[in-house]
């Protein structure tokens, strides 16, 4: 299935901002993170289609997955 993956802040270094990528049907958020060589404990927030999601959430075709490191401001 096709998933759009968006990366932010230093996760973009040597990777990409946004890419449409192919994954097997049973892929979870953690699978995508690990597949990109990102350490899971560096991940602060993940969203599927602009909703916060758990790391073990399953993805479905056409989903947009956004992966952020731990960030803050205000």
């Amino acid at each position: 299935m096709k998933i759009t993956v968006k990366l932010f802040a230093f996760f973009r270094q040597d990777r990409f901002k946004e890419e449409e990528r192919r994954y097997p049907d049973t892929t979870t958020v953690t699978d995508v993170i690990q597949g990109l060589g990102i350490a899971v404990d560096e991940v602060g927030v993940t969203m599927i289609n602009s909703r916060h999601c758990a790391l073990d959430s399953s993805l479905k075709a056409g989903d947009v997955l956004a992966i952020f490191p731990v960030i803050g401001g205000g």
Binding site: F8, A9, F10, V45, S50, H52, A66, G72
Partner: peptide, 23 residues
């Protein structure tokens, strides 16, 4: 704290993309 580290690199403006993504 990792937030401090991100603030030192991107400033508070690191929020534009995550607040946009959240709608």
């Amino acid at each position: 704290h990792p937030v401090s580290q991100a603030l030192g690199t991107y400033g508070t403006n690191v929020l534009v993309n995550i607040i946009n993504e959240s709608g």
